[in-house]
Design a protein around this nucleic acid. Structure first.
Length: 177
DNA sequence: TCTATGATCGTA
DNA sequence: ACGATCATAGAG
C-alpha cells in the first residue's frame, strides 16, 4: 500500500515528524526521471526555541517556508556548493522543519549519507524551495510504503534520527511485495 | 553597498 | 585539518 503523506502528517512538532519520516520514501519527478530514496536519517529544527535553527531569528526571504504551512520544501544553498533539502513542519506562523540527512537511493541501491549528497542526488536548487509537497500533482513528495524499520537511533538532544537497519534490509523488504 | 559566515564535503 | 566557493543576513 502506497500513500502520499498529507499536510496533517507534517503539521506536528519537528521532532515527531523527523522521527516518523524515517522509512518513508522521498520522491521527485524531474526531467523525465523519477528519483526515489528511503529516508534513513533526519534532523529536527524548531523555531524561536531552537538556537541551531534557521528559524531562530525569525522569518527571512530564505527561510519563509519554515513559517508557512506544513509540508513545504525548504531548500537552501550553503558553503558555496551544497543544496540542503528540508520539509516544513508545525503550525503556520511557527518556525520548524526537518532536514533530510540521508537516504537509500533506490536507483543505485546505495546509501547516500549527508544533506549535501542528498541535495545532489535529487538535483535540488533554490527554485525548489517553497514548493508544496502535499498537493496531488506535486513533483516532490513523500510516500508511505509500509517499510518497517528494524530500529531507529535517536539523539533527541540534537534532533537527529537515523535508521540503523542495513541498506540491504530495505531492499529485501521492497522486493517482497 | 560591503563583509563575514555557514544545518558540508572531498582531499590530505 | 583545511580549502572550496557564494548566497544570505546583518551591518554601515
Amino acid at each position: 500500500m502506497k500513500k502520499k503523506l498529507k499536510t496533517p502528517f507534517f503539521a506536528r512538532k519537528a521532532e515527531i515528524v523527523a522521527r516518523e519520516l524515517i522509512g518513508k520514501v522521498l520522491v521527485r519527478h524531474v526531467g523525465g526521471h523519477r528519483i526515489e530514496g528511503i529516508i534513513l536519517e533526519t534532523e529536527a529544527y524548531g523555531g524561536a526555541d531552537d538556537p541551531a535553527s534557521h528559524a531562530f531569528k525569525g522569518k527571512t526571504d530564505r527561510n519563509w517556508p519554515m513559517f508557512d504551512e506544513a509540508g513545504l520544501s525548504y531548500v537552501y544553498f550553503i558553503y558555496g556548493m551544497h543544496y540542503c533539502f528540508n520539509v516544513s513542519t508545525g503550525a503556520k506562523g511557527e518556525g520548524g522543519a526537518v532536514l533530510i540527512r540521508g537516504v537509500f537511493d533506490l536507483s543505485t541501491q546505495e546509501a547516500v549519507s549527508g544533506p549535501g549528497r542528498v541535495g545532489k542526488l535529487f538535483n535540488f536548487r533554490i527554485e525548489d524551495s517553497g514548493v508544496c509537497t502535499t498537493k496531488a500533482d506535486s513533483q516532490i513528495f513523500f510516500e508511505d510504503r509500509d517499510i518497517s524499520i528494524e530500529s531507529i537511533e535517536s539523539s533527541t538532544r540534537i534532533g537527529i534520527h537515523k535508521a540503523i537497519d542495513k541498506p540491504w534490509r530495505f531492499l529485501g523488504k521492497l522486493l517482497q511485495h
